[in-house]
């Protein structure tokens, strides 16, 4: 094993592998317009053009008469300059639409994942350590129920409970001012945390249990290794690997959850932008969002793989694809 060149070399190769992936993604996003019934023209103006002159003008303006390859290159160079086109619906540029909505979505995702990990890691660990006990049963219940309950159902239930029944929290929009915004984001953040919390509790519990049953744990116990040290230095370190992988998945799945949460609570974020562009068939905006999400997913996956190496140098280099 070439352990010496390992880390840096691995990181470099892992990052280089991203290049073809990004290429594939951009081509797919570019071709999205051809999938639309009616072709690129219909996609670009949002409907079927009946006027031939208009169609020809659009074809000329967007270089649709050139070969697909040169069309792609034109499009890609524009994207590289931050030009993602204009929304059919609002006439704003796609880039500015995305920029103004990105922060709130990031807050929702970040807080949701953070809260989920904050609760699920201790809960799952204690459950595993005291298998069959009360906390374990609670953890199993939480795991199954919360990870099965769809976030849009959860969101509507919370809107009803806190917004209508008890009327103690705002459930619509963002409000203005920091205090008001924070108040408006309480319920959405709770919903964002719920499903990951259930999922992670399951994962943490399972991976801790798996380690607890290993022979090395029995040996360590027999050798008289202290309980605290056993957990900290042996079990948690080993159990961390599946936990990190699963947390990485959260970065991707939470993005989907935002769509529903922002829809129910009327929060002007990227999810709402996607829903409105979907209802308006606003293809340029959809293209921009898909591109953003795809890059986000790719970066997240690379980051997870690199964190992997940091935690466990043992498996990393063999795992290289």
């Amino acid at each position: 094993m070439k352990r010496q060149s390992g880390l840096a070399g691995y990181a470099l190769r892992r990052v280089l592998l991203v290049v073809p992936l990004v290429l594939a993604v951009t081509i797919a996003v570019f071709l999205l317009t051809s999938l639309v019934p009616g072709g690129p023209v219909a996609a670009l103006i949002g409907g079927h053009a009946t006027n031939t002159a208009e169609v020809n003008a659009i074809r000329a303006r967007y270089h649709l008469n050139e070969s697909l390859v040169s069309q792609y290159l034109t499009w890609a160079s524009q994207v590289l300059h931050g030009n993602l086109g204009r929304s059919i619906f609002s006439s704003e540029t796609v880039a500015s639409e995305i920029r103004s909505r990105l922060p709130v979505t990031l807050v929702l995702n970040g807080v949701g994942i953070f809260v989920a990990l904050l609760v699920s890691v201790p809960l799952g660990s204690i459950a595993a350590a005291r298998r069959g006990g009360l906390i374990d049963r609670v953890a199993v219940g939480v795991g199954v129920f919360l990870s099965s309950a769809p976030n849009f159902v959860m969101a509507i239930a919370l809107v009803y409970l806190f917004g209508i029944r008890f009327n103690i929290l705002p459930v619509e929009g963002l409000g203005s001012g920091l205090a008001s915004e924070a108040q408006h984001l309480v319920l959405p953040c709770v919903v964002m945390a719920v499903a990951p919390l259930g999922f992670m509790t399951k994962i943490v519990r399972a991976s801790m249990l798996e380690q607890l049953e290993m022979d090395y744990v029995a040996f360590a116990r027999a050798r008289g290794v202290g309980r605290w040290r056993l957990y900290r230095a042996y079990i948690v370190r080993n159990a961390l690997i599946p936990i990190v992988t699963a947390s990485g998945l959260l970065i991707v799945t939470s993005l989907t959850a935002t769509v529903f949460v922002e829809d129910v609570f009327g929060i002007p974020g990227l999810g709402q932008l996607l829903v409105s562009s979907v209802t308006n068939s606003d293809i340029p905006v959809i293209q921009g969002l898909v591109l953003l999400v795809a890059l986000w997913v790719i970066v997240a996956n690379v980051a997870i793989d690199l964190v992997y190496v940091a935690i466990d140098p043992r498996v990393s280099f063999r795992r290289l694809r």
Partner: peptide, 18 residues
């Protein structure tokens, strides 16, 4: 496939092909 946000992708595809 695991790296893809499946539901998000489904939202986009179902919209685009109407």
């Amino acid at each position: 496939m695991f790296a893809l946000p499946a539901l998000l992708l489904a939202i986009v595809i179902v919209t685009v092909v109407q």
